[in-house]
Amino acid sequence: MGDEAMDVEAVNKQLSAAVSQQLGSLVSLTLLAGNLQGPLSLNLKDRLQAYAVAEVADTQLLVEKLAAVGGQLSPMEAPPVPSTDAGTALREFLEREEQVMATLHAVIPSTGQEPRSEALEHLIEHVLMRKQQQVDYLSLALG
């Protein structure tokens, strides 16, 4: 049971897609933090900036892991420019984050049970845990 090999081809394909989406998420969050307007933005600017810093760190770790398993980056989609309406912009960002988290989560079944598999799985779980907290907080901010 503990010797199930990583499906390297599947991991490369799935992780590449997840990293591409993560890069889009990072750009989206940066645009959101800079473009958000209105009273809601006054309360969220500092938190959004902190999330952007965390996204950079997570993205770097995911790219390093992709390189370590022999994968290559997929082309990044250009993220949409956020709405100037804070509520709309946040809802759109949260929908995008749900997609990113689902794509990241989809990598886990292919990781296997090797030591490097466990390391990859735990990295993904850490990123998912942080992103879920981010989604929960921003969802609460919307009311």
Score class of each variant (00 low, 15 high):
12 N>S: 00
35 N>R: 13
31 L>I: 12
81 V>P: 09
2 G>T: 10
130 R>Y: 03
109 P>I: 06
143 G>E: 07
108 I>F: 03
13 K>W: 05
106 A>Y: 09
86 A>P: 03
10 A>K: 10
23 L>S: 08
101 M>T: 08
76 M>N: 10
99 Q>K: 11
84 T>C: 02
135 V>L: 05
39 P>A: 13
79 P>Q: 04
59 T>M: 02
20 S>F: 03
137 Y>H: 07
55 E>P: 07
110 S>K: 15
32 L>M: 08
107 V>T: 05
100 V>W: 02
12 N>P: 02
42 L>R: 05
44 L>F: 11
61 L>Y: 13
135 V>N: 02
8 V>D: 12
94 L>G: 07
143 G>P: 07
18 A>K: 00
15 L>A: 01
96 R>F: 04
31 L>P: 04
51 Y>S: 07
143 G>K: 01
44 L>V: 04
78 A>H: 09
121 E>F: 01
7 D>H: 04
6 M>L: 00
1 M>A: 15
88 T>F: 06
84 T>W: 15
30 T>I: 03
10 A>T: 14
143 G>M: 00
37 Q>E: 15
8 V>G: 13
44 L>D: 06
1 M>F: 15
87 G>W: 12
56 V>E: 05
74 S>N: 11
52 A>H: 04
119 A>K: 14
139 S>I: 05
54 A>E: 03
47 R>T: 10
6 M>C: 02
91 R>K: 08
15 L>M: 07
39 P>M: 06
52 A>S: 03
133 Q>I: 12
30 T>S: 10
39 P>G: 08
101 M>R: 12
25 S>F: 15
116 R>M: 14
130 R>H: 11
28 S>V: 10
103 T>P: 04
27 V>P: 08
13 K>T: 12
72 Q>R: 12
82 P>H: 01
116 R>T: 14
136 D>K: 12
14 Q>D: 09
17 A>V: 09
4 E>T: 14
102 A>K: 06
39 P>T: 12
52 A>P: 09
8 V>A: 04
46 D>G: 10
55 E>R: 00
88 T>N: 02
70 G>F: 01
75 P>I: 09
15 L>E: 05
8 V>S: 00
47 R>C: 08
69 V>C: 01
138 L>I: 01
86 A>M: 02
58 D>V: 04
118 E>P: 07
66 L>D: 04
92 E>Y: 15
31 L>N: 10
64 E>H: 14
107 V>S: 00
82 P>Y: 09
83 S>N: 11
92 E>F: 15
89 A>I: 05
104 L>C: 06
35 N>C: 09
84 T>I: 10
55 E>N: 07
83 S>E: 07
87 G>Y: 11
57 A>N: 05
130 R>M: 07
52 A>D: 00
37 Q>D: 11
95 E>N: 14
33 A>S: 12
89 A>K: 05
12 N>E: 12
50 A>D: 13
